[in-house]
Amino acid sequence: MKYNEQAKVLENREFASGYRYLTVEAPKQAAEMQPGQFVHIRVPTLEQSALRRPFSVFDAADGKVTVLYKSVGRGTTALSKVQVGETVEIQGPLGRGFPAKCDGVALLVGGGFGVAPLHFLAKRLPKSILFVGGRTKDDLLALDRFEALGVETKVATNDGSAGYKGFVVGPLDETINELRAKGEKFELFTCGPDGLLKAVTERALALKVPGWISVDRHMICGMGACFACIQKTVRGNSRCCIEGPVFKAEELVW
């Protein structure tokens, strides 16, 4: 069931430069939300005709829904100015999320604010390892929240300012090789820029392990009605808002 609710803002806090947590009171959506699903938020200070903005859910529990976002464009900048106690209109839970179980170790691979749905997922999959990449250490988000869940984290930065120097597939491949040497099962879960998603898709297909790929697209309706948020799949042009955002690796055509 999808809902459209007026939700009270409980938190709209900058936790790193330009990055924020927005937490709202949305009990119906929080109760039904699955990791990998998203919400569509109407930014109250934008003009009446402005489109909603889609956000992956970082956490949903105790009647509250939290998203992680970056103030980049007109919508997110306006959203950053919304005060605690004000209301936003929020539509959700939307889209097809990640599966709630994993056979073996869950390898979560995030880029930028792609870590958001992986955090919610990590709460459901206790045997998780997070791999996160960024240009510099300032792009590595919410690591404290993963550590609080007891999730092992492995980081990579292009400039070497934290962890492995290079792309996040570096430490990912190391771990994959270790797990394979030990004969341990694992699955891949990812969200981030398309380049990262392609790299994880290739690995899932080559290794014949389940790969769950969350695709990020600009959206209009979020309900499967407008056909704007397309990703090429084996079925043709698929709507990310309803047939995704999470696709199986073998469904995707890059």
Binding site: S49, A50, L51, R217, H218, I220, C226, A228, I230, N237
Partner: peptide, 18 residues
């Protein structure tokens, strides 16, 4: 349908090419 991008938000409206 058409290639992505299929829409652009503009002041007071929306341009689409689904």
């Amino acid at each position: 349908g058409n290639a992505m991008m299929r829409h652009a938000e503009v002041p007071g409206g929306l341009v689409n090419a689904i």
